[in-house]
Every structure is written in C-alpha cells, then in structure tokens.
C-alpha cells in the first residue's frame, strides 16, 4: 500500500456532495490512510466534455495528473465515480494511442506524467487490513442495498473494477465491518446521471425503479459511491414520490458515511443534515452503543 495518496475531490465533493468529502476524510483519518488534496486541481470535464470533444475530455484530467506528479506522488484517490472514470479513461486512452498522447501534451503545454495510478476509495478500503478493528458501533438493524451505479465498473476494459454486472466490493467491505447488505438486481443500473437537469422525467423513472427494487428486497438504506447518484436518489426522492404516488422515505448514504458511523464517528460530524431524506429516524432505531 502506498504511504500517501493525492486526493482529487472534484467539483461535486466541494459542493453538492460535501458530505462525501467530510466522511471520506474522517474515515481516512480514523484508519490511518494519509491523503493530501491536490493543490490547484481542475474540473475533469465530466460528460459534457467527452460528449463535445475527445481531446478536451482527456486533457482536463491530465492537467490534474500533472499536478500530482509535482507533488511527488503517483497514487491518486478519486471518490467521485465520474472523476474516477474520467481519470482512468484518460490514462487508458493516452497509453493506447501515442499520437493522441502527444496532442494531450500539446494541449497542456507540458509532458505527460507516466505511471499514474488512479483509485476509488472503495479499492483502497477494500485492500486495507484491520478495518474491522476500527468498528466500535454495531448497526444491527441496518439493511443496506449497495448501489454502484454505472461508472465505477463500466466500461470494464478500462475501469478494471470488480465484476461489471454484479460487483461485490462494497458489499464485502460492509460485511467485513458487520453491516448487513442485501442481494438485489439494481446494483449497476443507471440513475440517468447528468440528464437530471435536462430530462428530469427520465431520471425520475429510472430512480423510481431503483428505489422500488431496494424497498422490495427489504432495504432500509441505500449506499452510493457517486455524488450524482446521490443527487438523483436523495435530493429528488420527494419528487419521485410525488410523480409516482408512492412513499419511500429511504435514506441514501455515501458508503463512507456508514463506515464512519460504524467506527463511532458522531453523526453530527458527518454532515448528515445535508441529506434531503432524513436519516435520524433510521439511525436512532438501529444504533446500538
């Protein structure tokens, strides 16, 4: 395991998904994983970039990777699934096509860093030994549906993350910490992602199917690893309920929030108040000192 990771929060973890940032940092501190935020990082460009210009969509992630090299590091942790996917894709494409790599380097006006390694926090925690020892709080009534979404595992050739249709990394991580996770069929279904603002109807339909299935298998919480999934499932949940005439009231957690809770980090230090679907009721019902 590397001694230190360059931390790329990306735009969402500085704004709409700040709870993810807070809980990720808290867990790292608790289990002794050294992270340092990349100074001067820029946006990865996310979907609008690759939908508009291939070169731009690869140059933006590389701009940040150049800063990582300057820090003297080569292991980058990117909690946002979209950033994670864009960074890994940039490295993959540059390695596959030397001519393209040359153009990226020209766009940045500097040489590209070699042998960069981009990781999701799931991969880091999964590999970390002794996580179970950090668990101080049992969460016996909690039944979690782990929702991986699209970009952690797909496309499998590039992402090389777990099994692309039915991943288990988050499930196994939770189970090793004594948290119950459920088998269900929507693990890698799409929430509609960035169509949230433009075609909200699509997002409501897709997220409704996900919430319905989670409820049907008996989950009382969903865990996510992507700020966009969180917006679509949590922030829009009331709208989904209105649209489809149902009531879910299903709290959506970043997986790091649940890890932090199990490690005894107080909930008011985790920014849970920022969630749209309240978590108090569930947490007071399941927490056992």
């Amino acid at each position: 395991m590397p001694t230190k990771y360059a931390y790329y929060p990306g735009c969402s973890l500085h704004s709409t998904g700040s709870e993810y940032d807070v809980s990720f940092r808290a867990v790292c501190k608790k289990v002794g994983i050294d992270i340092e935020e990349i100074k001067g990082w820029v946006c990865c460009g996310t979907s609008p970039a690759h939908c508009s210009s291939k070169l731009l969509s690869l140059a933006l992630p590389y701009e940040t990777l150049c800063l990582v090299e300057k820090m003297g590091l080569s292991d980058v942790v990117a909690p946002c699934a979209s950033c994670f996917s864009r960074l890994r894709t940039a490295i993959y494409e540059a390695n596959e096509d030397p001519e393209l790599a040359k153009q990226i380097s020209e766009a940045l006006d500097r040489p590209l860093p070699q042998s960069m390694n981009v990781l999701s926090p799931l991969e880091i925690f999964y590999e970390k030994k002794g996580l179970a020892d950090a668990v101080t709080k049992k969460l016996p009534g909690l039944k979690v549906a782990c929702y991986y979404g699209c970009l952690l595992t797909r496309p499998s050739k590039i992402m090389q993350f777990d099994e692309s249709e039915y991943p288990m990394a988050m499930d196994e991580l939770f189970r090793s910490m004594g948290i119950t996770t459920l088998d269900w069929s929507c693990k890698t279904d799409c929430c509609g992602g960035s169509l949230s603002m433009t075609r909200t109807d699509v997002v409501l339909k897709l997220t409704n199917a996900i919430l319905e299935e989670a409820k049907a298998v008996g989950a009382n919480a969903i865990a996510v690893a992507c700020p966009l999934c969180h917006v679509n499932l949590d922030t829009r949940q009331e709208e989904i309920e209105q649209e489809y005439g149902v009531k879910y009231g299903l709290p959506i957690f970043y997986f790091t929030e649940l890890m932090a809770l199990a490690m005894g980090i107080p909930s008011d230090e985790l920014g849970l108040k920022k969630h749209f679907v309240g978590t108090n009721e569930l947490l007071s019902a399941i927490c056992e000192a």
Partner: peptide, 21 residues
C-alpha cells in the same frame, strides 16, 4: 450544497487548455 461564489482556481489554465484544444 451550492456555493455562492466561484473559486477560480485553475481558471487561467483551463482557459488556455480550451483554446489550445
């Protein structure tokens, strides 16, 4: 969940990258 003011970190660099691309 939404910031009131932009950070502008890296703005000069992204500007240049967009133009070079």
């Amino acid at each position: 969940k939404l910031k009131l003011v932009p950070s502008f970190t890296g703005a000069m660099r992204t500007w240049k990258i967009f133009n070079r691309v």
